[in-house]
Simulated scan of single mutants.
Amino acid sequence: MTERTAVVWVHRNTSTCSACRRDALYDDSHHYTVPGGPTGRPSEQGCGARFEAIGSARIEIGANRLAQLRPNLPIRKYVPR
């Protein structure tokens, strides 16, 4: 069985899993939870994909900031579909 992998995309106030396109916590190793709800607590279970890279489509979130957030992950350039 092949492990599902994903890129965690960092936005201004949230982050997203590339595998299922739902909200994610950028500091999780895998997409375990979908953050949300009025208290900010996890509201659902994530898809379980392992985050293999981090990236952002926002120009103000540069490579230095991404490296600070997740120094253990390579940085992936955003390419629109």
Rank of each mutant, 00 (worst) to 15 (best):
S56I: 09
V10W: 02
E60I: 07
T14W: 12
L69N: 03
R41Y: 09
P71S: 04
M1H: 07
H11G: 15
G46P: 12
R81E: 12
P71G: 10
S15H: 04
R50L: 14
P35E: 05
A53V: 01
A24N: 06
P42E: 08
I54Y: 06
P42R: 08
C20L: 09
T5K: 02
P80W: 04
T16H: 04
G37F: 08
A6C: 00
E52I: 15
N72W: 02
Y32T: 06
L69G: 05
R76G: 00
S29F: 09
G40A: 10
A53L: 01
S43G: 12
V7M: 00
S56D: 08
H11W: 11
Y26C: 06
Y32F: 06
N72D: 15
E3Q: 12
T33M: 10
H31G: 09
R58C: 08
Y32M: 05
A6T: 00
L66V: 07
Q68G: 03
Y78A: 14
R22V: 06
P35A: 09
V79K: 07
A24T: 07
M1P: 13
Y78P: 03
V34L: 05
Y26W: 12
W9C: 02
T2D: 10
A67N: 09
T2H: 12
E52N: 04
C20I: 07
A63W: 07
P71K: 02
P38N: 07
W9F: 05
C20H: 10
Q68N: 03
R21M: 07
T5D: 01
G46V: 06
A6Y: 00
D27Y: 11
S56G: 07
R21F: 12
I75C: 01
L73I: 06
T14V: 05
L69S: 05
S56M: 11
Q68A: 08
P74E: 04
C20D: 08
G48N: 11
G36R: 10
C20G: 09
R70S: 09
H11C: 06
E60C: 09
A57Y: 13
L73N: 03
C17L: 03
A57H: 15
R22W: 13
G36V: 09
H11Y: 09
T33N: 10
R70P: 13
H31W: 08
Y32P: 00
D28Y: 11
T33P: 01
V7A: 00
D23A: 14
Y32R: 13
V8N: 00
G48V: 03
K77R: 15
C17E: 03
R12W: 07
Q45T: 14
H31E: 11
T2F: 08
D23V: 04
E3Y: 01
G46Y: 10
A24H: 04
N72S: 15
R12N: 03
L66H: 05
D28C: 07
V34S: 10
G36T: 10
S18P: 10
Y32G: 06
L66W: 06
P42K: 11
R76C: 12
S29C: 01
R21S: 09
M1A: 11
I75R: 01
T16P: 00
H30A: 12
R50P: 05
N13E: 10
N13F: 05
A6I: 00
I75S: 01
S56K: 10
D23L: 15
E52P: 00
A63P: 04
Q45I: 14
E52T: 15
I75A: 01
R22P: 02
C20K: 05
G40F: 08
V79I: 14
I75Y: 00
A19M: 04
F51T: 02
